[in-house]
Design a protein around this nucleic acid. Structure first.
Lengths: 140, 140
DNA sequence: CTTTTTTTCTCCACTTTTCCCCACCTTTTA
DNA sequence: TAAAAGGTGGGGAAAAGTGGAGAAAAAAAG
């Protein structure tokens, strides 16, 4: 029986709340607001307010009459939600993002350069088997 | 077990009223008038009065002898309606906009840079599947 | 014009969701 | 091994969302 010392997998309770792992939480300022948005794959992107605003700044002047760009902007930012971290270090994940990421009772936290991600643990494992990854051009 | 905690999907009642989600409503000033207009896709664009006037300002000097531009302006602004937010945070959606966006009993709210949008949830989901979106130029 | 009918507006009541606690168990740290 | 910190669950008050009744206003009919 697998010991459950895995600080990246956390439980999502009935109310949709999940505790952010301490090691990620330590990278946040106290009381910081986070922005949750639809990930490009079946996951949730979690930005700090600062990073999110940098992104918005970058797309500020995109021409929204262009259908492709408009839809892409809408995909990324249209369903974004600001959430506060509660007294127990938890966030409340909105229902529409839970269902996008196919999340139910537990989730997996992943660190990325400018944000972190919340995945269904099974979906994540499936996609990120080493034999499924192409490392060409990764400048190690 | 799918719970229906989805704060972006709201019910449209018999009278055509719908509550604006709090997180969007918080971005509005109290008692603010909104401008609803025909969206470029099958949706309704919702501007604050201010943003709407900025838009009108930008198209003020468009050459209306140009048929393409004349029709585009007419499309966007010709059927616009001002609506007030009622005591319960709801707006009344005019019938011609309901039918343009193919709305019946429920709708989905989407945030865009200078306005927000009201969609039929099914229409929205259909168009915004990740495989239908071109993310190439999104500077994440 | 007045009366009747329809539509719109305003308010009230009920249900669901969110927010803010506290309690408790587990894991890490000293 | 004890103390502190992290993670999980739940109760209850407050806020958000929803439906409907009745008043007011507008439109239609006589």
């Amino acid at each position: 029986m697998e010991k459950k010392r895995n600080n990246r997998i956390h439980q999502i309770d009935e109310k949709g709340r999940v505790a952010i792992p301490v090691n990620l939480r330590r990278q946040l300022r106290f009381g910081e607001t986070l922005v949750l948005t639809k990930g490009i794959e079946k996951c949730i992107f979690v930005f700090t307010q600062d990073e999110w605003e940098k992104f918005l700044e970058r797309v500020k002047d995109f021409p929204l009459w262009d259908e492709e760009k408009r839809r892409a902007i809408r995909y990324i930012s249209g369903e974004a939600e600001e959430v506060e971290i509660d007294g127990q270090g938890r966030i409340l994940i909105p229902g529409h993002l839970l269902s996008h990421a196919n999340l139910d009772s537990s989730c997996f936290f992943v660190k990325m350069p400018r944000w972190f991600e919340i995945w269904n643990p099974l979906t994540y494992a499936e996609i990120h088997k080493p034999e499924n990854i192409n490392f060409r051009e990764i400048p190690l």
